[in-house]
Amino acid sequence: MSAWSRQRFEYSGVLGLNARNANYIMPSNPRSAYPLVDNKVLTKRLMEARGIAVPSLYHLVEYHGDLKNIKEMLKDRRNFVVKPARGWGGGGILLVTDRIAESIFDQNGDLISWPEFSHHLANILSGVYSLSGLEDQALIEELVHPDPVFAPVSYEGIPDIRIIVYQGIPAMAMLRLPTKASNGKANLHRGAIGAGIEIGSGLTLNAVQGAKVITLHPDTGRSVSDIQVPYWEQMLLTAASLSEIVGLGYLGVDFLIDRNRGPLLLELNARPGLSIQIANRCGLKKRLELIDRASAAVFASPETRANWARSAFSC
């Protein structure tokens, strides 16, 4: 690669994987804090203790023996989400969106048989989807009903909002929109859309799907730019308060917005991905360096940090 394009990269402030790992994750994220964010059960309990809203936990399935009564345990639930406690990249997550009498259906409206459902839970428990490949637990939790503001730009599934927080300051954000290609999931590597969010205003910027820059949602045909993300200030403030709570200096925070309950903290990530830069058409390194140079007064409280970010980061 020519020095010329390397310089262009440096100039645009792109953060690469090596630099992310060596300069940001390793110095800022102590190993001891990882179990807390890698295990969704622990994250959920800590957030609830700190008064941060999360999707409610219905059941925690810990042992294969629990699967015998699974139908009985869920008999009053019309819809719910199953996910591995220590999963990664959205693997193993199953949305049960509807129930008619004894039958349950996933988000595509396909019937799931109870043996299939049990098998899926058994797979989670055996660690098929777990980060380490070791035994895992399965969470059965509240299904979030997305805020209608995103309905024109989502295909099934539930959109989520990712905020990268560095030293307690929200540095970059994006809205992830499920598509037909992503099978209703909001994971970028599965084909979901990532739309950058301007930190200052909470308005979506341009968007990408895979490596393609897009302006319209491929399935709904509606524009994905200039959407005002609701509860933006509240989410920024929550995100800014999390570094202290979980002890991670470099952190990815994911929110869902429930139509009734407002923003719910979905999960935390100690190694957030770098595609957010493509969604924002903006390098992350520039912003992280700006944060490193910010005056001490900026870091006084979550409010001062969120406010500073809102004035400093308009791309």
Partner: peptide
């Protein structure tokens, strides 16, 4: 090598859109 924090070759492709906009 463990202290190399520069870009990987593949990242010039992955983030090419960002290089263009600079």
């Amino acid at each position: 090598l463990g202290r190399y924090t520069g870009y990987r070759l593949s990242e010039y492709v992955r983030f090419r859109k960002l290089g263009e906009s600079a």
